[in-house]
Design a binder for these strands. Structure first.
Lengths: 249, 249
DNA sequence: ATTATAATACTTGTATACAAGTATACTTGA
DNA sequence: TCAAGTATACTTGTATACAAGTATTATAAT
């Protein structure tokens, strides 16, 4: 049975990616969206048939997903872990941890250039909302935080970010798409929080940074939980609904 | 040219490992010891010939090392990054970060069982020193910290640890072997610091924990720097000296 | 001598083949 | 009916083959 459904992951982000990366991105989205349920067992051969590629890229994809902690490689097949509320909280723990660490570094260096860059990204985010482009908005949102983290120039913190990023990205992508449909007014608050964040970086105000970060997370975490769960419930229905407008990437 | 030198990585730790893992461990040791210099370019084909395996496990190994940030995968060949002082400091930054985070979690739960486990490991460490087994000591040292981190039951913090662990392990392994030769008295201090750490966990004394952790790191970091550099200089000579007592794993 | 072009040698990514091991199902014997 | 053993089907890890792309080198023309 070959693959011919609409992909969850934005295909234009995969322009230069290998088959392994594509498979990883798509599987990640399906796992995080809940389409592939926690506890399911993925078989290399079956996946190879489904995605219509050989086992090599599948193996690569599974290794990637295992390092991201959303699947577990066992003797027989890969067990899906997925993202429960606990994992989502944990991811935000880590983000808080590393962004706080980074901020401590930033207060000691010149951040003018960084602030400029962040403002640019914020503008992009605003435009994305204006044109209701959830994917682009997500991209810029992730880029915003990555830009801050890169500014600290700390390769091992960046390593942690790189490990976390794909899962974060998928989660944000799904949650932003959902908000666009159901909670459009949320975007204003997200923008506001990012403005506060920039202000904190500019004035090197530690408390303000923590505040904006927390509010941003509480927003994404606490308030969205219910929506998220409903989204997970919905996802299967949504996918099935999309099933007939088949369109390969 | 097939491989036939004494391996830097303890072969008994590889009992059930795949060829890819073996290659990764061995390459990691050579990179961290400085035998393979930063900036070198590794070729899949050449490595496959050197290690006398096919490209598949080599590819796997390179992916692993790239995710650990000690090599960089580029269009043509893998560029060795290695561990300079900066990277070593960064690793300890991250350890401090995650172990502090973990400690905050530990003060809220019952740590009796953990303390027991840590005492056991500490005893093991003492025995290892007594019999001058640097490799076993390193193993237990790494296990000590991993045990603490696991106790926090935080999958994403554990993920970070798992990413960091191989490089840490290699570094500790090399530095403990060196101490055994040149700085035997250091071990007493390391044991002392670990005792303090256990005490901190037992009494949930935040300051004591930070103190012991810092002293442990300053020890490994500051004081060892010069030794480390001399070790890096030495490594090539040492390897060559070992070259003639060939012994496959 | 210098530049443009072509040939070569290496690179990555993917497909496929195979060996060794492990779980599942199917016998066969009591 | 149930236990033990065997066969089968699936698993992972590794080797090998190949296509497409990229750098390097050699050659040829000016």
């Amino acid at each position: 049975m070959a693959e011919s459904r609409k992909s969850l992951y934005p295909s234009k982000w995969l322009s230069k990616a290998s088959a392994g990366d594509r498979v990883a991105c798509e599987l990640r989205m399906r796992i995080i969206s809940g389409e592939i349920e926690s506890g399911s067992i993925l078989s290399e051969n079956k996946l190879a048939a489904d995605f219509d590629v050989s086992r090599s890229p599948i193996r690569e994809a599974l290794k990637i997903l295992a390092s991201e902690n959303i699947i577990r490689l066992e003797r027989m097949g890969a067990v899906v872990i997925g993202l429960s509320e606990k994992e989502i909280e944990e991811i935000y723990d880590v983000r808080l941890l590393i962004e706080s660490f980074v901020f401590e570094r930033l207060v000691r260096i010149d951040t003018n250039e960084l602030v400029m860059e962040l403002c640019k990204i914020l503008e992009m985010m605003k435009v994305s909302i204006k044109y209701k482009d959830a994917d682009e908005f997500s991209y810029q949102d992730v880029l915003f935080h990555e830009t801050i983290i890169r500014a600290a120039n700390h390769s091992y913190i960046l390593m942690i970010w790189n490990n976390l990023k794909p899962v974060m990205e998928s989660f944000i992508l799904l949650s932003m798409r959902m908000r666009l449909e159901e909670k459009y007014e949320d975007f204003a608050r997200i923008i506001k929080n990012h403005e506060l964040y920039i202000e904190a970086v500019k004035t090197k105000n530690r408390d303000l940074m923590i505040k904006s970060l927390h509010e941003n997370f509480d927003d994404v975490q606490g308030k969205v939980e219910d929506l998220w769960m409903s989204q997970q419930m919905l996802s299967k229905g949504v996918i099935q609904q999309d099933e007939h407008d088949e369109q390969d990437d």
